[in-house]
């Protein structure tokens, strides 16, 4: 069974009297233990897709299944299998990292002791000093907040992790820490984790993902492993693949959005 299977997924929003097609008849499947990348510029539909899989958005048409469970009809079963990191580390900023993590742990049925052990282990591996866990989130840097968000997602041991631009806006050191942690988590022999990673960073996608889909205007324009895509399009890097497909520079598209 695939970890994720989407068929003909459609999501349209109305804005100022016009319809915007955020996800336009997307079909794809993600294999178990795979890191599946979705790359595309801002507003291309990456986060909408992640929200549908997170049971936070109801699609207009098509279907999405997570380990065989329909995200609309069986949302309870899906929620027990997933977790998510979004681009903005959403927390109660006035209280400490630990108080935020303890809150999340309770929602997932984790005991306090267990939650603390797991949090400290993950944060330690991300280079986060233990004593800072007791500081209000608002006193921590953006990179440190994002590391707490990573811990919040990983410590519930999800089967499917939805990483929505987890490294956007991070300094190079924090970005590397997060990327290394993701790599290590997938390399562990006991890992049964599947990841969907959205990113703007083509190099990050090349390093972390088993397969990559390029999304533009709510449509997947190509899917394959980074090496397949490079050889398919005869290009040395994913950025060049993008240029080949669209006839435009990646940077040019990003600026436009």
């Amino acid at each position: 069974m695939e970890a994720v299977k989407c068929e003909g997924l459609v999501k349209t929003f109305g804005k100022n009297g016009r319809k915007i097609s955020a996800v336009n008849r997307i079909s794809f499947a993600v294999r178990r233990k795979e890191v599946f990348g979705i790359v595309g510029p801002n507003g291309s539909g990456k986060s909408t897709l992640i929200r549908i899989l997170s049971t936070l958005l109801i699609p207009d048409a098509g279907s999405a299944h997570v380990f065989g469970h329909d995200v609309v009809r069986e949302y309870g079963a899906v929620r027990r299998l997933i977790n998510r990191v979004s681009v903005d580390a959403a927390f109660f900023k006035g209280i400490s990292a630990w108080e935020n993590l303890r809150y999340a742990a309770r929602l997932y049925g984790l005991g306090k002791k267990d939650a603390k052990e797991r949090s400290l282990d993950i944060l330690g591996r991300l280079g986060f000093a233990e004593k800072r866990i007791y500081e209000p989130l608002e006193d921590l840097s953006r990179g440190m907040q994002q590391k707490v968000a990573i811990a919040r997602a990983f410590f519930t041991a999800p089967m499917l992790l939805l990483l929505d631009e987890p490294t956007t806006g991070l300094d190079p050191r924090s970005k590397l820490d997060v990327q290394n942690y993701i790599k290590d988590s997938m390399n562990g022999s006991a890992s049964d984790l599947t990841i969907i990673l959205t990113t703007h960073d083509m190099r990050e996608a090349e390093v972390l993902c088993d397969r990559v889909a390029i999304i533009i205007d709510g449509r997947f324009v190509t899917i394959g492993s980074p090496s397949q895509l490079r050889s398919m399009y005869g290009q040395p890097a994913l950025e060049d693949v993008f240029l080949d497909i669209t006839g435009r520079e990646w940077k040019e598209i990003e600026d436009e959005y």
Binding site: R51, S54, T55, L56, G76, R79, R80, I82, N83, R84, S86, D88, A90, F91, F92, K93, A104, L107, Y108, G109, R152
Partner: peptide, 18 residues
Amino acid sequence: AWERWEGTIEYTFMAPIS
């Protein structure tokens, strides 16, 4: 309202609790 301001409502709604 507070959860909406902080942006945590999506995480609460995504959690496996009824």
